[in-house]
Structures are given as C-alpha cells and as structure tokens.
Computed example of a mutant assay.
Amino acid sequence: MDLLPLAVSSVIFLLVSVFLYSWKLNSSGTKLPPGPRGLPILGYLPFLDRNLHLQFTILARKYGPIYRLWLGSKLCIVVSSPSLIKQVVRDQDTVFANRDPTIAALLGTGGVDIITSPYGPYWSNLRKLFASEMLSHANLDASYVLRRNEVRRAIRNVQEKIGTGVDIGELIFVTELNVVMSLLWGGTFEGEKRDRIGAEFREKVSKFIELLEKPNLSDFFPVLARFDFQGIAKEMKDLLPSFDEILDYVINDRLKIMDSEQVEGELPSAKRGKDFVQILLDLKEQNVAEESMTLTQIKVLLVYSTTIT
C-alpha cells in the first residue's frame, strides 16, 4: 500500500488547520481581549485543569480581569473582576441573558426550560411562573405541612437510632432530598408508594444532572455532533421516556384527586399541603400564564425545580 498520498494529505490538512487557527486569532485580535493561544483545532481544551476556579485565577493574573479562551471551535470569555461581573449579570443582564445550550440540555428539555430558552417573553413567563408562583411566599406557606413532616421524619429516624452512630451529613442530605420530593408531589402519594416513586425519580434526576454536567466533545466541535462519540446524546434520549412515565403517572393521579375534591366539595390541599404539581396544574387551569401552559412545560419545570431547589 502506497502511504505517500496519505502522508501528503495529512501534512496539508495540518498546515491548513494551523493557518486557519492563526488567521482566526489574528483576524479577531483587535476585537477580543487577550488570552492563551492553545493548540490548533483543539484550542485550550488540552490544558484545562479539574480545578477550573484556581486555573482561571492564575490566568486572570496573567491576562487581566477579562480574557478569552478557545475551547475547540467555541470562543469563551472569562470575566473575573467584580465590577465586570456586575456589568454582565446585573447592569446589562438582558444583553448577556441568552445561553449557548449543550446538546444534552437541548435533548433533555427541548429548549423550553428556564435555563436554556432564549431571553424574551417566553423566558420571562417561565421565570414568573417559577419565582413568582411556585416559590412565592403564599405557596411556600401552603407547602409548610409537607416540609414539617419531612423534618419530623428525620427526627424520628434519629430517635430510632439512639445508642448508635449517626452520619449527620448523610442525614441532612437525605432530608433535603426528601423535602424537595415533598415540594414536588408530597401531597399525592403516601407511604410505600411515595418512597418508591421518590427513589426512582431521584435516581433519574441524578443521571440527568450527570449528563448535563459531563463535558461533551460534540459541544466543542459541533461538526462531530452527528457521531455522538461519547454516547451522551443516546443516554439522554434513553433517559427521557422514564421521566415522562413517572411524571405522567404523578400528574394523572393528582388530577384524579383534584376532580374527587371538587365533587365532594373539599378545599384542595386543606389537609395534605400544596405541592408544585398542584400549583402548576392550578395555574394551567386558571390560565395565569400569558401563554397557555402545556403539560410539557409543567414536566420541565418539575424536573428543573428538583435540580435548582
């Protein structure tokens, strides 16, 4: 086999890549802040450290409070000065509000969640629903019964282990998770059914977060996305049906409870406490949102309220 043509092609490809990378840097050098050059094609990716906060601090001392990094084909601007951060997140927040969502995030929510959706009326509507409705003082007060019950369960758990060691860190962590689950649908299920569904949902959410946080080659080199070398897109696609199954089950059960309460003339959540599922379903029925809320939006808000709360 004659390897000469292959060798020549490889050399030409490398030279062209180096040229294009250098051209990219030089052509934008007058418009962009300074920063490390990195390698052709890969940029600064090979040099990233696990402790990014420490590495970025070192780079800020060298290049100043604002500098650039090329991560593959993605241009990233790092801001480390408090005054500049204030400009970005507060004074000019609408300019910087849009995100560049990862492939996993787009697959996971379809771009309709509060984090990845672009700034505009739709995003404002979601933010209003999440901050002003779900986490309003009135609705948090309505969920007091649910939160109180979880704390009491934790206390009983400790009392049952008198004379033995207790991992306080683990106890607090599990209690917080249980509180979040109660805020989601604590008034729908009780006993063994509640624990089973909660454990299954926590497992799925943990996997969901893991996929969102995992560095994906396809995000840095979009041209490679179709190949999904790391299998992240496939894992996310395989995970989504289980979310739908759990949330459909929860929502349908809650709708049955609400229908029976209306027939019997009971006040919703009078005894069980008001959770996020009921809050969102009430908003959907009342048409509080500027746009009609869909079940997809409700599911996305429930999933992200778990990760954010």
Rank of each mutant, 00 (worst) to 15 (best):
D91K: 14
D91F: 03
D91Q: 13
Q92G: 09
D93H: 07
T94W: 05
T94M: 08
V95C: 12
V95I: 15
F96S: 06
F96D: 10
A97P: 03
A97G: 06
N98A: 07
R99T: 08
R99N: 03
P101S: 05
P101E: 06
T102M: 09
T102N: 04
T102R: 10
A104V: 15
A104Y: 09
A104M: 12
L106C: 11
L107N: 11
L107E: 13
G108C: 07
G108E: 00
T109K: 08
T109M: 11
T109R: 05
G110L: 07
G110Q: 03
G111N: 00
G111P: 11
D113W: 04
I115N: 05
I115L: 07
I115E: 00
T116M: 03
S117T: 12
S117P: 11
S117E: 03
P118N: 07
P118W: 14
Y119E: 06
Y119A: 11
G120R: 08
P121H: 02
P121T: 14
P121G: 08
Y122K: 03
Y122A: 02
S124N: 10
S124G: 10
S124D: 05
S124M: 03
N125H: 08
L126A: 02
L126S: 07
R127I: 13
K128H: 04
K128M: 10
F130P: 01
F130S: 02
A131P: 04
A131I: 15
E133Y: 05
M134D: 05
M134P: 09
M134T: 03
M134R: 02
L135M: 12
L135R: 00
S136A: 00
H137R: 01
L140H: 00
L140R: 00
Y144M: 11
V145A: 05
R147T: 03
R148N: 09
R148G: 03
R148F: 13
N149F: 05
E150H: 08
R152I: 14
R152H: 06
R152M: 12
R153T: 15
I155T: 15
I155Y: 14
R156H: 14
R156G: 13
R156A: 13
N157Q: 08
V158C: 15
Q159A: 13
K161E: 10
I162E: 15
I162C: 15
G163A: 11
G163R: 06
T164D: 11
T164E: 14
T164N: 04
V166A: 07
D167M: 13
I168P: 13
I168S: 13
G169I: 12
G169S: 15
F173E: 06
F173H: 14
F173D: 06
T175L: 14
T175Q: 07
E176C: 14
L177N: 13
V179Y: 04
M181S: 09
S182H: 11
L183H: 02
L184V: 06
L184N: 01
W185S: 04
G186M: 01
G187N: 09
T188D: 05
E192M: 07
D195G: 04
D195M: 05
R196P: 01
G198E: 02
G198S: 14
A199T: 13
E200R: 12
F201R: 01
F201L: 12
R202F: 05
R202G: 01
K204Q: 08
V205Y: 01
V205T: 05
K207Y: 00
F208L: 13
F208Y: 12
